[in-house]
Amino acid sequence: MLFDSHSHLNDDQFAEDLQEVVARAREAGVRRVVVPGVDAASSRRAVLLAEQIDEVYAAVGIHPEAALNVPARDFEEVERLAAHPKVVAIGEIGLDYYWDAAPRPQQREVAARQMAIAARCGLPVVIHTRDAMADTLALLQSECRGRVRGVMHCFTGTLEDAKTAMNLGFFISFGGPVTFKNAPDVREVAARIPDEWLLAETDAPYLSPAPFRGKRNEPARVRLVVEKLAEVRGQTVAAVEHATYENGHRLFQKVQKGEAGD
Score class of each variant (00 low, 15 high):
D96G: 07
L2S: 05
E201K: 13
A83L: 14
R44E: 10
Y57S: 06
H242G: 13
A111R: 00
V232A: 03
S173T: 08
Q253I: 09
L199V: 13
L251S: 02
L137F: 10
V30L: 10
G175K: 04
L95A: 05
S142V: 03
P124M: 07
V47F: 09
D262K: 00
E77C: 00
Q106T: 15
M115H: 07
G150V: 02
E77R: 01
R32N: 07
A138I: 00
K215R: 14
V87H: 10
D195L: 14
S142C: 02
F171M: 12
V88G: 04
R147V: 00
P105H: 11
T244C: 13
K181Y: 03
H8G: 09
E79M: 04
I193A: 00
L95N: 05
V126S: 13
P211L: 11
A230Y: 08
H249R: 15
M152C: 13
D135F: 05
F171E: 10
E231S: 10
M152F: 04
L48C: 08
E160D: 12
A238C: 07
G61S: 08
N167G: 14
I53K: 09
H8V: 09
H6F: 11
G234C: 13
P36F: 03
L123T: 11
D12A: 15
E20K: 11
E51N: 14
R223M: 08
R113L: 12
D131P: 03
G214K: 08
P184E: 10
R24F: 12
A230I: 08
A59L: 11
L49A: 05
P85Q: 11
G61Y: 00
